[in-house]
Design a protein around this nucleic acid. Structure first.
Lengths: 126, 126, 126, 126
DNA sequence: GTGGTCTAGACCACA
DNA sequence: GTGGTCTAGACCACG
């Protein structure tokens, strides 16, 4: 039985320099490794997402296509795009991605001269 | 335009999608708003930095040029590129940049399903 | 970003010492402050202008880029470059630029020993 | 008998894009064709002018050198640099330069949407 | 086809 | 040796 959930939302940042299609890829991968999207869940259609995010359908198609190449999703022609079978690394992947995100942030915080105290205080405040 | 310190180091991430010249701009701005680079400090020469970072001098020139247009640095042809006169917003800018970096990180951590506890624990560990 | 007029023409002077990209910037700014180009008007594409002016596309890209950093234009990759939202100073800017141009001319005319009479006569003749 | 007048003053504009050495050349040529500097008049020494204008002596040397190549000045080693013998074209040259300066100005004024009336009024006001 | 990024390399203005 | 300008050309993101 194929589930039809579409409970994923995207937030794009146009000024960050990160290509839009990669932001989409990242957010889908994050949803997968965090367990919010699981095997068999359906992704939004290219068209609906294009309308939602106000971007060109080609951009989303490119993201889905790359995710398919990586084995994260599978496309069923005429039906939609689905999260692929769980692969073993998923559990590790979340930790890895979380740690990488933390390191990117700490790198930048370090450049801004923030010490551990200030950073943790900031985390607690927000 | 007096001091000649060059105590800034750069770290580039080629796979992040953020253009190299923008990474350089960000890191220089971070150094300025954090106080590590102050008015009159000299930046590394375009050519020396190009050798250091193993990138094309034009890429660095582009970064320095944008910083000049934005009023962050001043160039003296034949002499070098220097941090421009401190403008009043500098003090606020650090807080703003730090908060933005934190928000970007928390956004991504949220996508990965991390709660505040896990995040703070991670911060303390690294 | 609605209108698609491209009613701006450029005239470059190679021997003047003023960099080509700066001449382009000046002429676009002049068109904006004089009202010939208004918010939303599209600039010529980089490539078409490069062909027209017989210069390298990068030179035009550099001009457009600086105009974007200064907030004069906005770019939509895949679509074109457009005059940005009108900012309040525009009205004053025309007078300022006109007066500066006049002062540069009178400075040079003075060096050439021309008096007001001769200058005004010249203006009427041309 | 060689005259030793040094009654020429310079005004440099660093932001104009025109190289400093060319600004110097122009202003000396203007002084010559306008009759303010005549055959045999001595130019300021490179060193004194460098101090006055706060620029590098090499820049002035380059200007004087180019003027010598063009036959506008002559250098007497150990004595100084002097305006060369008047050549026939000088009388015409002033008109030509004046007209060119006027045309550059009118070009820019035209870009700013100024009509003859406004321009003449501006000339009269300043 | 639109603009953006990056490389490579030539030549110039200035100290 | 410093930065600035310009050319040429490759490849990318986006529509």
């Amino acid at each position: 039985m194929v589930k039809h959930t579409e409970d994923i939302s995207f937030s794009l940042d146009n000024g960050s320099g990160v290509p839009v299609y990669r932001q989409i890829i990242n957010q889908i991968e994050n949803a997968v490794v965090s367990g919010r999207m699981a095997t068999g869940n359906r992704l939004p259609t290219i068209r609906s997402l294009a309308v939602n995010l106000k971007i060109n359908p080609n951009t989303i198609a490119k993201a889905y296509n790359e995710l398919e190449i990586r084995g994260v999703v599978q496309t069923q022609v005429g039906s939609g795009t689905y999260i692929a079978d769980k692969r073993p690394e998923v559990a590790d992947a979340r930790q890895k991605k979380l740690r990488e995100a933390a390191e990117r942030f700490l790198q930048e915080a370090g450049e801004l001269g923030a010490e551990k105290d200030e950073i943790i205080k900031l985390m607690e405040d927000i």
